[in-house]
């Protein structure tokens, strides 16, 4: 298989397979959660479930002050990694073209140098996240194989993307193909790992806010 063939496979059948698994997996997982249902609360309400649930989806993004002080490394590295990762993912022109082709919506891109800078920040933050995971007492206790696998599979698209952007080591078609394949692997494992938090955290935060909000507490 030549590198162009590999790239064509990654852009064609590979992407098809990954997309099917990803979309089907995510939809099944979300339905699997929602269809379990939840009993209606029969107690007299002190606040609204819906509005408090929606508010918590937003407010839970901001860490509590004391918790921030106690876990600043975890919180800062986590935030930096997530935000810095979203910049290349959503604002690199070729990525926007991808989304445009698939979902038909597009938005303005950021210059290559900006995207590059954020990719570097994200890579550094991800390494910090890993070091923190392996050294922080609680995280080390909680860490299982899946956590490390998911870290690796998230790291690979970033680093291969960086290599492809700068053409390091291999020819462009190979680098692009490897980058795409790494994304495809990520998409395939996505629905079956904690990567699902990307979607389910909205549900979780809503439930949290709804449960507390019903009792009149802004959580």
């Amino acid at each position: 298989m030549t590198e162009i063939e590999l790239l064509s496979w990654a852009r064609g059948p590979g992407l098809q397979i990954a997309t099917i698994v990803f979309v089907a997996g995510v939809v099944i997982r979300i339905l699997e959660i929602l269809l379990l249902g939840r009993k209606a609360n029969l107690a007299e309400a002190k606040g609204s479930e819906m509005s408090n649930g929606l508010r918590t989806i937003v407010t839970r993004t901001i860490p509590d002050k004391t918790t921030f002080k106690r876990s600043s490394v975890t919180i800062v590295s986590g935030y930096v990694f997530h935000i810095a990762m979203f910049i290349p993912l959503f604002f690199f022109a070729p990525h926007i073209l991808f989304f445009k082709d698939v979902i038909g919506v597009s938005w303005p891109s950021l210059p290559g140098a900006v995207v590059d800078a954020f990719a570097v920040i994200s890579i550094i933050a991800m390494i910090a996240v890993l070091i923190n995971r392996l050294t922080n007492r609680v995280m080390r206790y909680l860490t299982n194989f899946e956590d490390l696998l998911v870290w690796l599979l998230t790291f690979l698209p970033l680093i291969t993307g960086y290599f492809a952007f700068h053409r390091i080591g291999l020819t462009a078609p190979s680098l692009l193909a490897i980058h795409l394949l790494s994304v495809e692997v990520l998409l395939i494992v996505f629905p079956f790992t904690k990567l699902m938090h990307t979607f389910t955290l909205f549900l979780a935060r809503w439930y949290n806010g709804a449960i507390s909000g019903y009792r009149g507490v802004a959580s």
Partner: peptide
Amino acid sequence: DSSVAAFFSSCVHCGL
């Protein structure tokens, strides 16, 4: 129930 399932699905083992 659905809330428990959403909670467990979302845990990323951050330890906070």
